[in-house]
Design a protein around this nucleic acid. Structure first.
Length: 730
DNA sequence: GACCTGCTGCGGCATG
């Protein structure tokens, strides 16, 4: 029995916890970690006891050595999660006399100093703090990371995509290099996503050697409703505190339904954007006040102060007051907020992975169904409404997302556009850590394996040349070939914001009566008397401290939602858009649609047939022409670059693109031209890409390196363009 | 027409 294999002190601790049995993942993980010698991936839902599944056997395996060296490094994407895990591990480790230290920006200084003097036990750390250790304390990094036996990566799925995942992957390679024996990697992941991709992330050299421990607990029953709403005439669908016309808009009617359905229990509402969170929070508070009842609908997003967010998280977890959190993606990850009655989502899903993660927040107790309500809004139709709006795309996307959810589809990770930025950042970091380095060994450490290897040897040399150029001055080469920091490199690496691989803009800080409310982008023009809706309440600015960028506010009855600078839109995967087309081509009306949503779906299908979209791919709209590709955002973008290259101005939308000021027959000629090209090279097309610079240090990366990487990323997609163009002209 | 995340070292002060 796996229980008997655990350290005696751990077994005693388990008895005292009054656990009746080990959970399935724990039982499997104990065997995988104690019997095997390789990496282990543990995939289970939030409540399944993943932390214990990893740490009980790891502590058993390291108990004898943990007191002489730092033997376990636990890496987490969130400080809040580190604090949670510290609380869970501290008591057990105290019993075993194993040292546990929190290591992040807000963690106590004293414990960190003690660990530097006497490195032993477990450190719980963020990627940025690992980076800071390499850059600021290279000799300590050698001592601390040199004898690790285990590296635990929590919320591994959060690192599969995006620059932070590339950054951590590189840091772990560097840790491996300073260890005599490569530490075993233990990944903890939610049950979403593609486990093969997670295994590849954990061990890019030998992904097949990673032992998989997957929770066998069956998913709970799902109760689902998609509710449709149509905007009244004159509404633009941009959320503010009140509708444009003063009449009830779709969001008002959604707020009515949420208010009457969710009040009295704990729930989560995912509203999609900070603007919509604030708008809904305001409308729901208004309804509570109108009914003379305490407001239990509270906002949660990344611009709110830690104080306000923690207050709401604690209230949800404690569960003595009914609470509904209206959130962006902030409540998808990590922190334990207890179980909720239901999950609501404003707008049709754009990612199945994200939808699954949100569902995982509901119905986590045995025998309790997960409840999901999706609220979709469609426009009011007039004779000159655009054909695309007549298709009722939101309702179709909601239906398509549910079909893919049932099929267990999840978007696979894509190659990240931040590869060059991370390679450049790590080059600077290693030079600081090692005090100068030859190009060959920089290349081997950074690109010798793992996700950054895609940059290739010549790409890397190009990047180094760019870094050494007189315009950049990031690095210099000594006569003996050693690469050292240049003037600008010295400056960049000595700044505090060097440790993180993502950028943050300057912001105003909002303060009321000495309490931090949160921040808004500096791009908001504010002065004394400005009115702001923020943190679910309404305010007037009374003091502007321009130097410290602080706004003092006081309650006020009128307000507007501030601008939160938006970037690009969330891309759709090929599969979701293909499924939307399949929804139009069938006649079935799913039972989970309410009456209005069912009507909207049928209306969309009639429009689909009326436009002849089962064959027709070009649709005129005024002076413009829609090209319906029924592909995901990545393909539509590449295709639109191809069309621009033959002289047309176009913009991408969810199911294709729109060519401005061109009739269908003109677009047809352009498509024939594209179809006739013998082969479109991704490297040629990369020359036409406009916005290549998106990541933090891309300004220092030579254009030709960025073009090369764009071509690598889009190679397969570009290969399809001529064929698709040809099928459109048939 | 989007979201999220993180941060050193030092001086100076109060407190135990």
């Amino acid at each position: 029995m796996s229980f008997d294999r655990l350290h005696p002190e751990i077994r005693r601790w388990i008895w005292e916890q009054k656990w009746e049995e080990l959970r399935d993942v724990q039982d499997q993980a104990i065997r995988a970690i104690l019997d095997g010698t390789g990496d282990v991936l543990i995939a289970a839902s939030t409540a399944a006891g993943k932390t214990e599944a990893a740490f009980l056997p790891i502590l058993t395996a390291t108990a004898s050595k943990a007191n002489s060296d730092l033997s376990i490094l636990y890496v987490s994407p969130l400080k809040a999660l580190i604090n949670d895990q510290f609380r869970r591990l501290d008591l057990l480790c105290e019993r075993m006399e194993i040292n546990v230290v929190r290591w992040h920006g807000d963690a106590p200084h004293s414990a960190k100093k003690k660990l530097l003097r006497d490195p032993r036990g477990i450190a719980l750390i963020t990627p940025e703090s690992v980076e800071a250790m390499f850059v600021r304390r290279a000799t300590d990094a050698l001592r601390l990371f040199g004898k690790l036996e285990f590296v635990v990566v929590d919320e591994l799925h959060a690192f599969l995509q995006g620059p932070r995942g590339l950054h951590l992957a590189s840091l772990l390679r560097r840790i491996d290099e300073i260890s005599k024996i490569r530490p075993r990697r233990i990944g903890l992941s939610a049950t979403i996503g593609d486990l093969d991709a997670a295994a590849r992330w954990l061990n890019p050299e030998h992904p097949d050697s990673v032992a998989l421990v997957e929770s066998s607990a069956a998913g709970s029953e799902l109760r689902l409703q998609v509710r449709g709403y149509v905007e009244p005439p004159g509404e633009d669908g941009v959320d503010d505190l009140e509708s444009v016309t003063g009449e009830a808009d779709a969001l008002d009617r959604i707020a009515d339904h949420l208010f009457s359905t969710l009040r009295g229990t704990n729930n989560l509402i995912f509203a999609g954007s900070r603007r919509s969170v604030e708008s809904l929070a305001d409308r729901l508070r208004f309804r509570s006040e109108g009914a003379g009842v305490p407001n239990e609908f509270l906002p949660h997003h990344g611009s709110l102060s830690r104080e306000l967010r923690e207050e709401l998280e604690a209230r949800l977890k404690k569960g003595d007051l009914p609470t509904t959190a209206i959130a962006t993606t902030t409540l998808e990850l990590g922190i334990d907020i207890g179980s909720v009655n239901s999950v609501a989502q404003l707008g049709a899903p754009r990612s199945i992975a994200s939808l699954r993660q949100r569902l995982g927040r509901s119905g986590r107790r045995k025998g309790v169904p997960a409840v999901l309500r999706v609220y979709v809004r469609e426009k009011h139709l007039t004779p000159d409404t655009d054909p695309l709006d007549r298709l009722r795309l939101e309702v179709a996307r909601a239906a398509a997302a549910v079909r893919l959810l049932v099929e267990h589809f999840v978007e696979p990770p894509r190659i990240d556009p931040a590869v060059a930025t991370v390679a450049l950042h790590q080059t600077l970091s290693i030079i600081v850590e090692r005090g100068g380095q030859r190009a060959k060994s920089l290349y081997d450490t950074i690109c010798g394996g793992g996700p950054l290897s895609i940059i290739g040897q010549s790409g890397y040399v190009d990047m180094l040349r760019g870094m050494a150029s007189p315009e950049s001055r990031l690095i210099e080469q000594a006569p003996d070939g050693t690469i050292m920091l240049g003037e600008v490199g010295e400056k960049l690496t000595s700044q505090r914001d060097f440790y993180a691989i993502f950028e943050t803009d300057q912001e105003w800080r909002l303060v009321h009566a000495g309490h931090a409310l949160g921040t808004i982008p500096i791009s908001n023009a504010v002065g004394i008397g400005s009115m702001l809706a923020f943190a679910g309440r309404r305010w007037r600015v009374v003091v502007v401290d321009d130097r410290a960028k602080v706004l003092e506010v006081t309650p006020h009855p009128l307000a507007r939602i501030p601008r939160f600078d938006r970037t690009a839109f969330e891309p759709l995967h090929d599969r979701l858009v293909a499924e939307m087309k399949a929804v139009y081509l069938t006649a079935e009306v799913p039972l989970y649609l309410n009456e209005q949503a069912a009507d909207l779906l049928q209306e969309g299908r009639r429009a689909f047939r009326a436009l002849g979209l089962d064959r027709e791919r070009l649709v005129q709209s005024g002076k413009d022409t829609h090209v319906l590709l029924w592909r995901g955002t990545a393909f539509n973008s590449a295709f639109s670059i191809g069309l621009s290259a033959v002289g047309f101005e176009c913009s991408v939308h969810d199911i294709g693109l729109t060519v401005s000021d061109a009739a269908p027959n003109e677009v047809l000629l352009a498509l024939q031209q594209m179809a006739a090209m013998p082969s479109i090279s991704p490297y040629d097309l990369a020359e036409k890409v406009g916005n290549l610079r998106t990541a933090k240090y891309d300004n220092y990366v030579p254009t030709r390196v960025l073009r090369y990487l764009w071509a690598q990323r889009n190679d397969a997609i570009v290969g399809e363009i001529a064929g698709v163009a040809s099928s459109l002209t048939a």
